[in-house]
Design a protein around this nucleic acid. Structure first.
Ligand SMILES: Nc1ncnc2c1ncn2[C@@H]1O[C@H](COP(=O)(O)OP(=O)(O)OP(=O)(O)O)[C@@H](O)[C@H]1O
Length: 725
DNA sequence: GCGCGTTCCGTTTTT
DNA sequence: CGGAACGCGC
């Protein structure tokens, strides 16, 4: 074995993994394998191999990850082998981030301004809601209503297939060509939706904005139209390929035009069908890339035998799936725990106490950060959070992009968006009267319609009124709008001097006296102000090296503000959290957010019917796969629980155990004896040999038995006291 | 135009 | 039960 990481990166790979890493770069490759088989590890090693063995320059490699977090982790792993400089040259990120990055540079090739804003789902809904008003009466004649989110979802699905508004309209008329009797209403809805799609696009273009799907659609257009945008690319690698949609697939094809592509994926882990992901892309790749090779990895390195056995039994119930072999050389370990509790309160309390018990029984081999509670949806986190808090266990809740959706964060972001892109009217509407300046609905509507008549943006109109270049509008606003214009101009001036985003936020807070505004308008201003501070610290952490294309020419570099706004729209909470922070707290997250991650101990509450599968789920099998993904995040111990009665939407509902689990236990009851039960109801008593198994699976030193005794005694004393008072 | 009280509604999953 | 939307009175 060599000490030099540039030589030893192949050493820890098994034969199949090695074969995948060394596979000829010019032959398209699919690495298909179950959870924990080292797919991501192989992808990372392959990048190193392409660079050091095949002499492909780092800047010619495009690595697509599913989340920003995954990109950061991969970057960190690569850093240890390749060094900071070279890693920063690899074009790495999500499809969305990569597209955004290149669209800044080549905006003109697809008719965009370089300072385009990214419109989030909330703003999109508002835009659609506005357009929807026109169709209210028409809908009312049929006693129908149409929700903005359903329109947006249709539009999003169309964009995921690469359909423009016009194409979508054609699709609609095709679909309804032989109008079935009784389908008049859905035809009307489809038509109205198609018309709104057109209106919505117009608004986005007018406001110099792209929505999330547009990043992909315009990115694809740009890569196709402008050869310079793709000619740098000598190899494309895509992680979590089973969850790509058609537009993303086309992006891969376009960027990987040299046919040098490597993808990794696992059909059993496809859980984003609801977002138009298509597993079929795997088969499609075989036809579009002739000679595509497949490599299967069958050894799981992550989990104990019994966790893998239970998970495999679970996914095996999906009878449409292709069977796959997956084994582990790890010991069996403790059977996954499956238990019923009366209500969610007892369930959560159990998890908290069990975490404490395990920390003691493992003599500190397990810390808070080694535990994850994985949920079907965010709302389930409430009880868990408070139960952990009550026991003094530190935790962090990964709420995806929700942090950036809080009103105090959105307010400040809107000021900055408007600073960067005065045409981004959604931001103008949000903040022109925040804090109150006496510009209410009437004035606002008047501003917007006047601006439309003059064919300029409301922001520019406001500036012109303030400058006296344009007459004031009906309810006079010149005085009131003056403060606002001055604020935006100060921010703009500072941004042009390439001020740091954190400083710009502080400046903004000062200029609008935002803390005062929060105090006046919200009782919970304290926690809201904490979010403001968190936004500042997020801004301080955004490095410009990772989110922009390196360019010697300073004039071609994006302003720090623009890069910050982009990452705030594209990143999720905890994306760039330090390992330190993650280590000291229990993680609470959704199963979706847990994709690709692993923890020594995983707990999944509410494994009930109507949760798994979720009662409104369109695709039942996808729900099963979701539970499978969650279970396979566990390395050493897995806990599933369900309750008899759960408070849902205010009233108590009777709940039953998830059918996915019942199917498995029924099967095993027939086939095996009681001791071979795939799940157990008994709380695992952690003895010395169990600690040994854990230390083996986690590759950590086993604790000193004396330390264990001491920690257990401490816990006993503490819990006796708690019992007394 | 603003602030407060009321009702009503309905709980996915995310870039 | 908790948040967003609405409506009423100032
Ligand atoms: N050859 C190996 N030797 C030792 N450990 C390995 C090996 N390959 C992978 N591992 C370990 O197994 C775990 C899972 O690896 P990785 O995350 O790459 O799997 P994966 O296939 O991407 O999983 P998933 O599909 O669940 O995302 C990691 O902790 C990794 O370090």
């Amino acid at each position: 074995m060599s000490e030099d990481p540039l030589c030893s990166y192949l050493d820890s790979l098994n034969p199949a993994q090695l074969q995948a890493v060394e596979h000829p770069p010019s032959i398209p490759l699919q690495i298909l394998a179950g959870p924990g088989s080292g797919k991501t590890k192989v992808l990372t090693s392959r990048i190193v191999h392409l660079i050091v063995r095949h002499g492909i320059s780092a800047s010619s490699i495009c690595a697509v990850t599913f989340t920003n977090k995954a990109a950061n982790e991969m970057r960190e792993r690569l850093m240890k082998i390749l060094g900071k400089q070279r890693v920063s040259e690899v074009r790495m990120g999500t499809f969305h981030a990569l597209c955004a990055m290149f669209l800044r540079k080549y905006a003109h090739t697809v008719g965009l301004e370089r300072n385009f804003s990214i419109c989030d789902t909330d703003e999109s809904k508002k835009i659609i809601g506005k357009h929807l008003e026109k169709y209210k009466e028409q809908l009312a004649t049929q006693n129908m209503t149409l929700k903005p989110e359903s329109v947006l979802s249709t539009i999003s699905k169309a964009k995921a297939k690469g359909h423009t508004a016009e194409q979508h309209l054609i699709e609609v008329s095709k679909k309804f060509k032989d109008l079935p009797v009784g389908a008049e209403e859905s035809f009307m809805v489809a038509n109205i939706t198609a018309e709104i799609y057109e209106d919505y696009e117009k608004t986005l273009r007018q406001t110099n904005a792209l929505d999330f799907d547009d990043l992909l659609v315009f990115g694809l257009k740009m890569f196709k139209a402008h050869e310079d945008a793709v000619s740098w690319c000598k190899h494309v690698l895509v992680d979590e390929f089973q969850d790509t949609n058609i537009t993303q697939y086309d992006l891969m094809r376009t960027i990987g035009y040299r046919q040098c592509v490597t993808i990794v994926g696992d059909p059993d882990q496809s859980i984003y069908g609801w977002r138009s992901a298509e597993v079929e892309n795997l088969a499609k790749m075989q036809t579009h890339f002739p000679g595509t090779a497949q490599i299967f990895l069958e050894q799981n390195y992550r989990s104990t035998g019994s966790i893998l056995r239970a998970s495999s039994a679970l996914i095996a119930q999906d009878d449409k799936r292709i069977r796959k072999s997956l084994y582990t050389s790890h010991p069996l370990g403790k059977s996954p725990f499956l238990k019923l509790f009366p209500t969610e309160t007892e369930e959560a309390a159990f998890m908290a106490l069990e975490i404490k018990r395990l920390v003691a029984l493992t003599g500190g081999m397990l810390q808070w950060g080694d535990f994850a509670v994985l949920l079907r949806f965010n709302a389930l986190s409430r009880v868990v959070e408070s139960a952990l808090q009550k026991e003094g266990i530190p935790s962090r809740v990964l709420r995806g992009h929700k942090f950036f959706e809080r009103l105090e964060v959105k307010d400040l972001l809107a000021y900055l968006q408007l600073t960067d892109n005065p045409e981004f009217t959604p931001a103008f509407i949000r903040v022109v009267n925040t804090p109150s300046r006496g510009i209410g609905e009437k004035s606002l509507l008047e501003l917007i319609s006047t601006a439309e008549k003059c064919r300029i943006s409301p922001m520019l109109l406001a500036e012109r009124i303030f400058d006296g270049k344009t007459p004031d509008i009906k309810p006079p606003v010149k005085r009131k709008i003056g403060t606002f214009v001055k604020i935006i101009r100060s921010l703009r001036e500072s941004a042009e001097k390439r001020s740091l985003p954190a400083d710009l936020i502080r400046l903004c807070i000062d200029l609008i006296d935002y803390s005062e505004h929060l105090k006046k308008t919200h009782d919970d201003w304290e926690s809201r102000y904490e979010n403001v501070l968190e936004l500042i610290s997020f801004a301080a952490d955004v490095g410009d090296d990772i989110s922009s294309i390196h360019d010697e020419d300073d004039r071609n570099r994006e302003t720090p503000l623009r890069l910050f706004l982009q990452s705030s729209m594209l990143s999720t909470e905890g994306d760039n959290e330090s390992a330190n922070d993650a280590e000291s707290r229990v993680t609470i997250a959704t199963c979706h957010a847990a994709k690709g991650l692993e923890w020594p101990v995983v707990m999944i509450p509410s494994v009930e019917d109507d949760t798994f599968p979720f009662y409104r789920a369109e695709d039942r099998e996808e729900e099963r796969r979701l539970l499978y993904v969650a279970c396979t995040r566990a390395q050493g111990l897995l806990y599933l629980s369900h309750v008899s009665r759960r408070k849902v939407a205010g009233d108590k509902k009777t709940r039953t155990r998830s059918p996915f689990i019942s199917q498995v236990t029924n099967l095993y009851r027939v086939e095996s004896g009681p001791n071979l039960d795939i799940f157990t109801e008994d709380e695992p008593d952690i003895a010395r040999e169990d600690r040994t198994v854990l230390s083996q699976v986690l590759q950590r030193p086993a604790p000193d038995e004396e330390v264990v005794d001491q920690r257990v005694a401490e816990l006993f004393v503490l819990s006796c006291r708690a019992g007394l008072y």
